[in-house]
Design a protein around this nucleic acid. Structure first.
Lengths: 140, 140
DNA sequence: TATATCACTTGCGAAATGCAAGTTATAATA
DNA sequence: TATTATAACTTGCATTTCGCAAGTGATATA
């Protein structure tokens, strides 16, 4: 059975919509892997976020596509693969992820200090670099 | 049975830590209710986020306290009530929530346009106001 | 004393999740 | 061509979480 996903909206604050789309254990991590680590295929997601189950990954990719956060297309160089790409809506999540990372880095002992320092040093520059990389690798 | 919550850390990016603490359907909404709407008691949370079950609310409040995002103390004016307050770590989530709201507002049809416009117009000013309100209402 | 309200807890059915084992399609190799 | 490997999934099933209704004990109010 193929599930349908629709953004059944709770009323009130727009945060409800965000939580509807992103408020689970894996969605934001998948988006981070696409945005920061350059993951684009199923196997790359599986190995980036070790621990995610294959059925959950398939489900989250489907949801993210339904929400317009990612698109998918066949890989021209390998017919077995599919390539997942962030949409404009997806790359617009960069400030959200950045703030989350900075928050955690400020209050927890955390990994990847190089990335964090890059964010802290010049947030705008970091975001611009993320967006530029996205534009370069996205055939639009 | 009373559950224990500890931040079992996944390695790598600090985003893992944030998702560990906030990656569910309700935590961010509870924090928003405290931060923006001034909710401080169990009943206020129940009525702010209509739909949250009482057991889930109790669980999330326990988790958020375990993570150091909120504190709780008895209400001096009513011994039945408990008052929940954001810690410094909790109020530091304001930029995260703000970016999430702005993201959703930019890509979805959303409620509370007044709040959104306030955020868009001057993000720093909005965040400063949130923090000031927190300082005023928090006995530290 | 009686009743209401507070912050929970308990029980239970339903849904979501995690894991292992398929399945199908394409690609690379012999 | 036959075989093997890898890709993106699906399926089954046990475990966990969730949502709802109904308690519980402590405190406040009449």
């Amino acid at each position: 059975m193929t599930k349908k996903y629709s953004a059944k909206r709770r009323s009130g604050c727009p945060l409800n919509a965000s939580v509807e789309m992103l408020g689970d254990r894996w969605s934001l991590l998948i988006i981070r892997d696409m945005m920061i680590r350059g993951a684009r295929t199923y196997q790359e997601f599986l190995h980036c976020d070790e621990g995610i189950a294959t059925n959950i990954l398939a489900d989250r990719l489907r949801k993210l596509e339904a929400y317009g956060i990612i698109t998918t297309e066949p890989d021209p160089s390998d017919g077995r693969k599919r390539i997942y790409l962030l949409t404009a809506k997806g790359i617009d999540l960069a400030p959200v992820l950045t703030e989350m990372v900075l928050w955690a880095a400020g209050h927890e002992d955390t990994g990847n200090q190089a990335l964090v320092q890059q964010m802290q040093k010049d947030k705008e520059k970091f975001l611009a670099a993320v967006r530029r990389r996205w534009e370069e690798t996205t055939i639009s």
